[in-house]
Computed example of a mutant assay.
Amino acid sequence: MSAQNSTGIQTLLDAEREASKIVQKAREYRTKRVREARDEAKKEIDAYRADKEAEYKDFEAQHTQGNKAAEDEANKEADGKIAEIQEAGKANQDKIIKDLLSAVFDAHPAPVS
């Protein structure tokens, strides 16, 4: 009976070792699969990010062109107005200086109520 018990115990130990190997393989497979899934997800995220960045750059380029045109138009208009003001200042420079000097030197005090 002891030989039979010894054989039964040996069979159980062999079965336990085999089960341990199967569990270890399952863990390795799961770890490998998790790693693969993570890498795959990272690739998808990178591709999505690149796609959205390209969309944003296209959107920005389209809308910046409109802003650039408006900015150029405003700059032209402002330059024109500045030129007008400078010409008016040059044309009336003597009168403006005379009026300023007259206002400073010919004071007419008036009571404030």
Results as ranks from 00 to 15, higher is better:
Lys90Ser: 04
Ala19Tyr: 09
Glu36Cys: 13
Ile82Met: 03
Gly89Val: 07
Gln86Glu: 03
Glu36Asn: 07
Ala83Tyr: 02
Ala91Arg: 05
Ala83His: 04
Gln86His: 03
Ala61Ser: 09
Glu18Cys: 04
Glu36Thr: 04
Asn92Tyr: 04
Lys81Pro: 00
Glu44Met: 15
His63Val: 13
Ala83Glu: 03
Arg27Cys: 10
Ala47His: 15
Gly80Glu: 01
Glu84Tyr: 01
Glu55His: 13
Leu101Asn: 06
Pro111Gln: 11
Ala69Lys: 07
Lys43Phe: 10
His108Pro: 02
Asp72Met: 01
Tyr29Gly: 13
Thr31Gly: 15
Lys25Arg: 07
Glu18Lys: 12
Lys81Gln: 10
Arg38Met: 14
Glu87Ile: 03
Ala78Cys: 09
Ala74Met: 12
Lys42Tyr: 09
Asp94Ser: 15
Ser102Arg: 06
Lys21Trp: 03
Arg35Gln: 09
Gly8Gln: 15
Ile96Ser: 03
Glu16Leu: 14
Tyr29Asn: 09
Lys98Trp: 10
Lys42Pro: 00
Met1Val: 14
Ser102Glu: 06
Ile9Phe: 05
Thr64Ser: 11
Val112Ala: 07
Glu60Gln: 12
Gln93Ala: 04
Asp14Asn: 03
Gly66Gln: 11
Ala88Asp: 08
Asp79Ala: 12
Thr7Met: 03
Lys76Gly: 00
Glu28Gln: 14
Lys95Asp: 06
Ala107Val: 13
Gln10Arg: 10
Asp14Ile: 07
Ile22Glu: 13
His63Cys: 10
Ala50Phe: 05
Ala91Val: 15
Lys90Val: 01
Ala74Cys: 14
Ala74Val: 02
Asn92Leu: 10
Gly89Ala: 05
Leu101Ser: 11
Gln86Thr: 02
Thr31Tyr: 14
Ala103Tyr: 14
Gln24Glu: 08
Glu71Leu: 05
Gly80Val: 01
Lys25Ser: 14
Ala107Arg: 06
Leu100Asp: 10
Glu71Val: 03
Ala69Phe: 10
Gly66Cys: 05
Arg30Trp: 09
Gln10Pro: 01
Ala3Val: 13
Ala15Leu: 09
Phe105Cys: 05
Ala91Ser: 12
Ala110Leu: 06
Asp99Glu: 07
Lys76Cys: 00
Tyr29Thr: 08
Lys57Tyr: 11
Glu28Ile: 07
Asp99Trp: 07
Ile9Gly: 10
Ala83Arg: 02
Val104Ala: 12
Phe59Val: 12
Glu73Met: 00
Glu84Gly: 00
Glu71Lys: 04
Glu87Ser: 11
Ala50His: 09
Glu53Asn: 08
Ala15Val: 04
Ala3Phe: 11
Lys98Met: 13
Glu71Gly: 03
His108Lys: 12
Glu71Asn: 05
Glu44Ile: 13
Asn92Ile: 12
Asn67Thr: 11
Phe59Glu: 05
Lys68Met: 05
Ile45Asp: 01
Glu84Pro: 00
Tyr29Cys: 15
Ala78Ile: 12
Lys43Trp: 10
Tyr56Thr: 07
Lys90Gly: 01
Ala88Thr: 04
Thr7Pro: 00
Asn5Phe: 04
Ala54Cys: 11
Gln65Thr: 15
Ala70Ile: 02
Arg33Phe: 14
Leu100Ser: 15
Asp46Tyr: 07
Glu84Gln: 02
Ser6Tyr: 08
Thr31Asn: 06
Ala83Ile: 02
Val104Phe: 09
Thr11Ser: 06
Val104Pro: 00
Ser2Gly: 05
Leu101Lys: 11
Glu73Ile: 00
Glu73Asn: 01
